[in-house]
């Protein structure tokens, strides 16, 4: 049922691809409250078509509401003065919209938030598994596990997780959840996607979003740059961006395609392969200890010197 809805939605997307205005909220006839989870094989994601964004910042408002932050009234989000400086998501805002003007060309707006990487560096780094990639594609955080070491912030190549340094007792790592709770509670799309008046945010299965994005580029090679940010960056991400300008000019960091977690996990797993390297080192040192032993050399009076029981050989192998 769910996948049929997706397919219908997808076909609609393709049909409308000439005028890239796609209803992000899918068909309204879906009554199954939990239909938007990734019940089919693919994980979910969001495609942002930067060419469509008008910079209304309503998504910032909706996100703050959904996340339970103290948000000012919606009118205050019309204030364009905030665009003077680039902002970053922080401990009290999961997403921000930044403006990029460039001479003659029209200004562009970019919504910044966690990309929900396919192989998230933050989750690979977290030593207690407080950050997890869920089956739906969202990377979510469990404050009860977290130690507050902030290694996740070091690891994220997109510089997304923010920390509540002001909170003395129960600080949390804060970042976009792809509205995992909201969606588990029956919402069909994330709050920011729902409120977007221009429908430049599309929620759906990642593979379908990618197909859609490629299709738009194919149909309008003049309108888009040939790069879908998030398709390959850091091993790919759930959140995808289409743009008519070079991403480097829109505040996106250049991130290589290799997932950073592969670098450390390869080392980590090599060192601990079947526990063989540590065990071999232990055995080797034990052997050296045994062989270099000079019986008359053992000061009988000094403690902290290992006395060598005859069963040493068995014990270290």
């Amino acid at each position: 049922m769910k996948s049929s809805a997706n397919r219908r939605w997808f076909l609609k997307s393709l049909a409308l691809a000439g005028a890239p205005v796609v209803c992000p909220t899918v068909e309204a006839d879906e009554t199954d409250g939990h239909e938007s989870g990734a019940t089919s094989s693919g994980t979910m994601g969001v495609l942002m078509d930067i060419t469509q964004c008008v910079g209304c910042r309503k998504c910032e408002y909706a996100c703050g509401q959904a996340a339970g932050f103290n948000v000012p009234p919606i009118e205050t989000f019309d204030d364009r003065a905030v665009f003077e400086n680039d902002r970053r998501p922080g401990p009290a805002s999961y997403t921000v919209v930044n403006r990029y003007a460039a001479g003659e060309s029209p200004e562009r707006f970019v919504k910044v938030n966690c990309l929900h990487c396919n192989e998230p560096a933050c989750a690979s780094a977290c030593l207690v598994g407080a950050l997890q990639k869920t089956a739906t594609g969202a990377v979510v955080y469990d404050p009860w596990k977290c130690m507050g070491c902030r290694y996740c912030m070091v690891a994220c190549p997109f510089q997304i997780p923010a920390y509540e340094y002001d909170n003395a007792f129960t600080p949390q790592v804060r970042k976009c959840t792809m509205c995992a709770d909201r969606i588990a509670n029956g919402a069909r799309v994330p709050a920011c996607v729902e409120i977007c008046p221009k429908e430049c945010l599309i929620y759906g299965r990642r593979d379908e979003l990618l197909a859609l994005a490629h299709d738009r580029i194919r149909q309008h090679p003049d309108r888009y740059v040939e790069h879908i940010y998030g398709e390959h960056e850091a091993g790919g991400a759930s959140w995808l961006y289409l743009s008519d300008r070079r991403f480097a000019d829109l505040g996106f960091v250049a991130v290589p395609a290799a997932a950073p977690s592969h670098l450390t996990e390869t080392l980590q797993h090599a060192v601990f392969k079947h526990w063989a390297p540590p065990a071999c080192l232990y055995g080797l040192l034990g052997a050296i200890m045994w062989l270099s032993r000079r019986p008359d050399d053992e000061p009988k009076t000094s403690p902290a010197v290992p006395t060598m029981p005859p069963r040493l050989k068995g014990a270290v192998s």
Partner: peptide, 14 residues
Amino acid sequence: HPALPSMWQGNSVL
């Protein structure tokens, strides 16, 4: 917490 097997995260260098 790292001492709790339920939270072990063997991929993490930390």
